[in-house]
Amino acid sequence: MSEQVHNRLAMVRAERKVSRQRLAEAVGVHYQTIGYIERGQYNPSLDLALKVAAFFGLPVEALFSLEPFQPLTDQVYGHGKDS
């Protein structure tokens, strides 16, 4: 049983200029684990997902979702708008 959990971790981390190592130390995991979460190769536990969300000060659903995330530009500017 393995449900794909989608995440925006890489994007948020880049946006906040936080290295994998720093995030990993803050949430108490190996830095590889952060990389594997970003690549979708590991689904974090609820505990870890909440810790990551708390680190960034975001709700957990802003970082993790069972559905693929919409591109940010679509969310901000609306999908299919005429330019």
Binding site: G28, V29, H30, Q32, T33, Y42, P44, D47
Partner: peptide
């Protein structure tokens, strides 16, 4: 393996 089988469990994270 980053010491997967050598390190004690308390050193490993949940994924490891």
């Amino acid at each position: 393996t980053r010491g997967l089988l050598e390190l004690r469990p308390r050193v490993l994270d949940e994924r490891q």
